[in-house]
Amino acid sequence: MTESMEVEKDELKKRTLTAWEKVQIARDNDRAYTQDYINHIFDQFMKLHGDRLFRDDGSIVGGIASVDGQFVTVIGQQKGRNLKENEKRNFGMPYPEGYRKALRLMKQAEKFNRPIICFIDTPGAYCGMDAEERGQGEAIARNLYEMAGIKVPILSIVIGEGGSGGALALGVANEVWMLENATYSILSPEGFASILWKDSKRAGEAAECMKITAHELKELGIVEQVINEEEPITNINCQGVCDCLREKIIDFLKKYRGKTKEEIVEERYQRFRKY
C-alpha cells in the first residue's frame, strides 16, 4: 500500500463513506477474502474439491470446518490477489462447475447434519462462452431451487462484492449478513449507468441510487445484520472483525440448534417470500 493510499484510508475512517467509495473498498485488492475469514474464524478447516461432473473451479472454495466444537460446511467465492492467483481464482467469478461444487457440498452438509456458512464475494458469475455452454443459468437456478429445500440452517455473509445472481447462488439462506463496506447489487453501478443512462461514467451516481450498501439493504429487509468495520477490513487487519463474527456465528448456530428441519425450511421460505 502506498503512503498516499494510507492517508486516504485514514481519512475514510473519519466520515461516512459514499456508496461509490464503498464499491471501491469492496473491490480493493487488500480486502479480506473468503480464505482469510476461514483462517481467522474456524478452528479447523479441510478443503474439498470438485463438482464430480467436469472439474474443480478455483473461484469457489469449500470444505468442512469446525467452530466452538461444532462442525459446519463452509463455502465461498475466492478472489486472487494478483494475476497469477487469478488464473486459478478467475477474480472470484465462478463457472457453472463452481456452483455445482457448492451445491454438492451443501447436499453433503445436509446429509451429515452440518449447518452451512457461505461467504459471498464475487463481481458476478463468469460471462464467457464456455460458462454459457455448460449452463451458467441452469447452475445458478439449481442452487436457488435446491437451497430452498436444504434442511440444515444456512448463513450467508456478504464480505466484499455481492454481484447479482452469481452472489445469490450462495445466498438463499436463513439469514444474510453484510460487512459494513460490502455491496450487494443487481449489477455493477457501471452496468446500471450504461443500461439506464447510456453512460457508464455515471457509475458513481448510479451507486448512490441503487441501494447497494449494507445499511440501505438492512433497511430494505434484504439483510438481517450489518457487521461493523472500524476501518475497511483487509487481510492484515481482519482479526478483530473475525473475532466478532466468530461470536455471532456461534450464536447463530445455537439459535438454530433448537429448530426442527421443517422450521428451518419454512423460515427460509418465508424470508424470501416477503419480497
Binding site: 436457488l144 445472481g165 445469490l168 438463499v172 450487494y184 443487481i186 441503487m210 447497494i212 424470501f272 419480497y275
Partner: peptide, 8 residues
Amino acid sequence: MMSLMQMA
C-alpha cells in the same frame, strides 16, 4: 435488489 430477490 428487490428484483434480484424475485429469482429466489
